[in-house]
Simulated scan of single mutants.
Amino acid sequence: MKKTFYLAFLFLVVQHSNAQNIIDFFYSIPAEYVDNLSFIERKNLVKNKSLEISDMAYSLECDVKNGYIRLGQSYTEGQSGYGVYEIAYWNLKNKKLIALSSVLGSNGGFHQHNFKLFEYKNGSLSEVKNGYLKSYTSNFDVFINNLVTEFTKSNTKQSIKEELSDLQFTIELPRTGKNIKVAFEENPMSSPEYFTKTYGKYLNFREKTYKWNAVKEVFE
């Protein structure tokens, strides 16, 4: 009886030690993708939900149940710039897929700054080179150009695509659900008509939801 209880207890301990949640992934992602925050700084953020470093202020929203984190970054004085970093993950058959999306902005507007996919398996985090999302590659400049190309008409010049990639084009990770939203969002700092009049003629659509196919384990 004692032996059975001990084995059951040991099994639960092992299961718990292997369990990973969104906070663990927040700690594991390389600092260069989360505004160079150290492990200790991230620990403090999780504990206190806010942090100030020099002239930078950070805030953290953490939804462990839904596997979602939103890290906000702004200046405490002077500059108007800000950053939003999202992290979410998907359970695969024998590993986890983790996504990080970051958007930078200021009073003049905002744009997608980075997007990365990682795999977590057997206690190890590795960056995905390509796959899961049709246009995805770990080279962000190539990826964002591929993504904008999906949104634009076939005869659109490369120079226009480059302009579009810096104009309120964002990748939004799911706070709930499994799908990723990509869109040219409205810019509250400019006229609503400006974007449509200037760039509408180049677009097939302004928004697309990439739906998670749990069977194929890809976004479609």
Rank of each mutant, 00 (worst) to 15 (best):
T4I: 15
A8L: 14
F9D: 12
L10S: 07
V14H: 08
Q15I: 15
Q15W: 15
H16I: 15
N18P: 12
F26W: 03
Y27H: 15
A31I: 06
A31D: 11
A31H: 07
Y33I: 02
Y33H: 07
V34R: 04
D35Q: 15
D35G: 10
L37I: 00
F39K: 14
I40V: 12
I40C: 09
I40H: 12
R42V: 00
N44D: 12
N48Q: 11
L51F: 02
L51Y: 02
I53G: 04
I53D: 01
I53A: 04
S54T: 09
M56I: 13
L60G: 01
V64E: 07
V64L: 05
K65T: 14
G67V: 06
Y68I: 04
Y68S: 04
Y68P: 06
R70E: 15
Q73H: 14
Q73G: 14
S74K: 09
S74W: 04
T76P: 09
G78P: 12
G78Y: 01
G78E: 05
Q79A: 15
Q79N: 15
G81D: 15
Y82M: 07
Y85N: 14
Y85E: 05
E86D: 13
I87C: 07
I87Q: 01
I87T: 07
Y89V: 06
N91G: 11
L92H: 02
L97I: 06
L97T: 08
L97S: 08
L100S: 06
S101Y: 00
S102M: 06
V103E: 02
G105E: 03
G105S: 07
G109A: 05
F110P: 11
H111L: 14
Q112R: 03
N114L: 05
F115D: 02
F118N: 03
K121I: 03
K121E: 09
N122G: 05
S124P: 09
S124I: 15
L125T: 09
E127F: 02
V128T: 08
V128P: 13
N130A: 11
G131W: 00
Y132H: 06
L133A: 02
S135Y: 00
Y136P: 11
F140V: 02
V142R: 03
I144K: 03
N145L: 13
N145C: 12
E150Q: 10
E150C: 04
F151S: 05
T152L: 01
S154N: 10
T156Y: 00
S159R: 03
L164E: 00
D166M: 15
L167W: 13
F169G: 03
T170V: 13
R175P: 09
T176N: 13
G177C: 08
K178V: 09
N179P: 08
N179I: 08
I180V: 13
I180D: 06
E185A: 07
N187W: 00
N187Q: 03
S190C: 12
P192Q: 05
N204R: 08
N204K: 12
N204F: 00
R206G: 11
E207N: 05
K208G: 01
K208I: 00
T209K: 06
K211S: 11
K211E: 09
K211I: 08
K216C: 07
E217I: 04
V218T: 10
F219D: 01
F219T: 02
F219E: 02
